[in-house]
């Protein structure tokens, strides 16, 4: 079951193509990473899902039906470039934004009270935004994004401007929302948090969707079948036992526990590798080396750019 599905989205601006045949499927209740270099078209795609702008071609399905105006009450959006009215008081402003998302005044007040307490920011209610630090304002902003308990949340760089403690707080809140069944689209350049939080990803580059899938599968598929073996014994003996059959990339003998990195032709050869080395050394650990999202991102984007020319359009 997909909460959001885009089909062949195309969007032109006056002198360039912002999105070219982009299709993504966001499963219900998942955290979906939207990745890509700057200017790739992520923000345009997010704006189309938010109905801020419309696609030239293609359609967006929300919960199985074509997107309609009232769906915005079921979506919460935290834009990357965000701000609040500087001269307005925090409480009033939160109330205003919550009401714009369709909550009644009374309901908005009740929920804000709960969240202000939960985030321990009750004291800010009567302060003006300009009196708060950037991180504090971000906290208020995060809170008003989720206040109407939408089914779909779109976070664009949600951690920017937060200190590590608040990053953790926001992360925990995002995971808590996921547990409650909220679907989350998460756009960021921070690959570590993508690995930590996302279930699925889509990589957009030069207006196109160049890589999509479940994050583990993506990482596995970009795994180059390299395994790391740490062992006790003679490195030379190990080297000999592999000779000709397996590709030894590197052997690190500086530590008391030597480590060898070996590339296999397919993943299914791991048993054969073990059989070959068990007689000569004591194996302490045997781990596949999975490429990080960071490496995959760089690799995929560079390969694509080489294939399609450095400039877009």
């Amino acid at each position: 079951m997909y909460l959001i599905e885009t089909k062949g989205i195309e969007k032109h601006y006056s002198n360039h193509l912002a999105l070219d045949d982009v299709s993504i499927k966001v499963p219900q209740g998942s955290i979906y990473g939207l990745l890509g270099p700057n200017g790739a078209g992520k923000t345009t795609l997010i704006r189309i899902i938010n109905q801020i702008t419309g696609p030239d071609k293609g359609e967006v399905l929300f919960d199985g039906h074509p997107l309609k105006p009232n769906d915005i009450y079921r979506i919460g959006y935290l834009p990357e470039e965000r701000g609040l009215y500087k001269k307005m008081k925090v409480g009033e402003q939160a109330l205003f934004l919550a009401q714009l998302k369709g909550l009644s005044r009374a309901e908005a007040l009740k929920r804000l009270k709960y969240w202000f307490e939960r985030f321990e920011i009750q004291a800010w209610w009567n302060k003006k935004i300009e009196e708060l630090s950037k991180g504090m304002a971000q906290k208020v902003q995060f809170l008003v994004t989720i206040i109407h308990e939408p089914e779909l949340l779109i976070f664009d760089e949600p951690f920017s401007g937060f200190d590590p403690i608040n990053v953790q707080l926001v992360k925990d809140e995002i995971l808590a929302l996921k547990r409650k069944g909220t679907t989350i689209i998460f756009s960021t350049h921070n690959m570590a948090s993508v690995e930590e939080l996302c279930d699925h990803i889509t990589l957009i580059n030069k207006s196109r969707n160049i890589l999509s899938g479940q994050i583990d599968e993506v990482r596995q598929s970009y795994g180059s079948n390299v395994f790391e073996i740490s062992f006790r014994g003679e490195p030379a003996a190990l080297q000999q036992s592999l000779d000709g059959k397996f590709d030894l990339l590197n052997i690190d003998t500086e530590n008391s526990l030597p480590k060898a990195q070996v590339r296999l032709n397919t993943q299914l050869e791991s048993n054969k590798l073990l059989q070959a080395i068990i007689p000569v050394v004591d194996i302490v650990s045997f781990n596949p080396i999975v490429p990080s999202m960071h490496d995959i991102f760089i690799q995929v984007v560079q390969e694509y750019n080489q294939k399609h020319g450095a400039t877009n359009n």
Partner: peptide, 15 residues
């Protein structure tokens, strides 16, 4: 003011 301090970005998704 709304545009330069980016309140627009926030409000535009609901209005």
């Amino acid at each position: 003011e709304e545009k330069s301090n980016r309140v627009v970005e926030v409000i535009i998704s609901s209005v």
